[in-house]
Amino acid sequence: MDVFMKGLSKAKEGVVAAAEKTKQGVAEAAGKTKEGVLYVGSKTKEGVVHGVATVAEKTKEQVTNVGGAVVTGVTAVAQKTVEGAGSIAAATGFVKKDQLGKNEEGAPQEGILEDMPVDPDNEAYEMPSEEGYQDYEPEA
């Protein structure tokens, strides 16, 4: 019985440690998101679009440190934060509304985080759909 109880105690310690790591990862992701939003706020009209992409990228980098179902929630929060940063930029006159959601080359930025393969159960990952990809044929 002692062996059984000791095993359960060790398992509990492992769960607590994993929860603490997840909590730490979420806190880091939130900190990076805040950094990115402050970065966007300090940019001029020309830099705002690039700044919004930076927020998304920093958040995406930190999301990889967070495991399990938390990833889905962090990704949703990050996307809403990026959308909010863009709205703030438009409201303050840093950028025109028609410039939001495009990178410096004018290509749409939507789907940055949505296409990231995420499995809350950590069982399997699927690649994003290939609808947006084109076949590449090298020139002879």
Rank of each mutant, 00 (worst) to 15 (best):
Gly67Ser: 07
Phe94Asp: 04
Glu83Ser: 07
Thr72Met: 15
Glu104Leu: 06
Ser87His: 11
Ala76Leu: 12
Ser9Glu: 14
Thr22Asp: 00
Ala76Gly: 06
Ala140Leu: 12
Ser9Phe: 15
Met5Gln: 00
Val82Tyr: 09
Lys80Ile: 07
Phe94Lys: 03
Val3Ile: 03
Val37Asn: 00
Leu8Gly: 00
Gly31Leu: 11
Val63Pro: 01
Val74Pro: 01
Ala27Val: 06
Gly67Arg: 14
Ala17Glu: 06
Lys80Thr: 04
Leu8Ala: 01
Val118Ala: 11
Ser129Thr: 08
Glu57Ile: 12
Glu139Gln: 04
Gly93Ile: 11
Tyr136Phe: 06
Ala124Lys: 15
Gly7Tyr: 08
Ser87Leu: 15
Val70Trp: 15
Ala140Ser: 09
Ile88Cys: 04
Lys32Asn: 02
Gly14Trp: 05
Val3Phe: 03
Ala11Pro: 00
Ala30Phe: 15
Glu20Lys: 03
Thr92Tyr: 07
Gly25Ile: 11
Lys58Thr: 07
Ser87Gly: 14
Val26Ala: 02
Asn122Glu: 07
Ala89Asp: 02
Lys96Arg: 07
Ala85Thr: 05
Gln109Ala: 02
Lys12Tyr: 14
Lys23Glu: 00
Glu28His: 06
Ala89Cys: 13
Ala29Arg: 02
Pro128Trp: 08
Thr92Ser: 10
Gly7Ser: 15
Gly36Met: 15
Gly93Arg: 03
Val49Ile: 11
Tyr125Val: 13
Ser129Arg: 04
Val55Gln: 01
Thr59Leu: 04
Met1Gln: 00
Ser42Cys: 07
Thr59Tyr: 15
Gly93Val: 04
Met5Lys: 09
Ala19Asn: 01
Lys43Arg: 08
Val15Met: 14
Asp98Ile: 03
Val55Cys: 07
Val70Gly: 01
Gly132Cys: 10
Thr72His: 15
Glu131Trp: 05
Gly14Val: 14
Glu123Met: 08
Ala19Gln: 01
Glu123Thr: 08
Asp119Lys: 02
Ala78Asp: 01
Ser42Thr: 04
Thr72Ile: 07
Asn103Glu: 06
Asn103Pro: 11
Val3Asp: 01
Thr64Ser: 09
Asn103Lys: 07
Gly31Asp: 07
Val71Arg: 09
Gln62Arg: 12
Tyr133Trp: 06
Val118Asn: 13
Glu46Lys: 07
Gly132Thr: 14
Gln62Asp: 01
Ala85Cys: 10
Gly67Trp: 09
Gly86Ile: 15
Gly31Trp: 14
Lys10Asn: 03
Val37Arg: 00
Ser87Ala: 13
Gly51Asn: 06
Met116Glu: 13
Ala56Val: 14
Thr81Arg: 02
Ile112Thr: 07
Tyr136Met: 10
His50Phe: 13
Glu13Arg: 09
Gly14Met: 15
Gly25Asn: 04
Val77Phe: 09
Ala53Ile: 12
Gln62Thr: 11
Asp2His: 08
Val63Cys: 05
Gly41Asp: 00
Met127Asp: 05
Lys58Gln: 05
Gly7Cys: 15
Ala27Pro: 00
Lys45Pro: 02
Glu61Thr: 05
Tyr136Leu: 09
Lys21Leu: 13
Ala11Phe: 13
Gln109Lys: 15
Val40Asn: 00
Gly86Trp: 15
Gly93Asn: 04
Gly41Val: 12
Glu137Gln: 06
Gln62Met: 07
Glu123Tyr: 11
Ala107Trp: 10
Ala107Thr: 08
Ser129Cys: 07
Val52Thr: 01
Lys80Ala: 12
Ala11His: 00
Ala30Ile: 15
Lys12Asp: 00
Val66Tyr: 11
Glu105Pro: 04
Leu8Pro: 00
Ala124Arg: 08
Thr59Glu: 00
Gly93Ala: 10
Gly93Thr: 05
Gly41Ala: 09
Lys80Tyr: 05
Lys97Tyr: 02
Pro108Phe: 07
Met5Glu: 00
Leu38Ala: 04
Thr75Val: 15
Ala30Ser: 03
Pro138Val: 08
Lys96Gly: 13
Ser42Ala: 14
Ile112Asp: 05
Pro108Asp: 08
Ala107Asn: 12
Asn65Pro: 02
Lys12Met: 15
Asn103Ala: 05
Glu28Tyr: 04
Pro138Leu: 06
Gly7Met: 06
Gly132Glu: 11
Val118Glu: 13
Val16Lys: 11
Lys45Asn: 01
Gly93Gln: 04
Val48Asn: 00
Thr75His: 14
Ala78Thr: 08
Gln62His: 05
Val63Ile: 12
Ser129Gln: 07
Glu139Ile: 11
Gly84Tyr: 13
Gly41Leu: 02
Gly73Asn: 09
Asp2Gly: 00
Lys6Leu: 04
Ala17Asn: 11
Gly67Gln: 13
Lys6Trp: 02
Gln79Asp: 03
Lys23Asp: 00
Lys80Arg: 10
Gly47Ala: 15
Asn122Ala: 04
Gln109Thr: 11
Val95Asn: 10
Val82Arg: 04
Leu8Met: 08
Ala91His: 12
Ala107Arg: 09
Ala30His: 02
Asp121Thr: 09
Glu131Lys: 09
Val15Glu: 00
Leu8Tyr: 02
Lys32Asp: 00
Asn122Gly: 02
Gly84Asp: 03
Leu100Thr: 08
Gly84Cys: 13
Gln109Trp: 12
Val63Asn: 01
Phe4Cys: 01
Gln62Ser: 12
Gly41Ser: 10
Ile112Gly: 10
Thr64Pro: 02
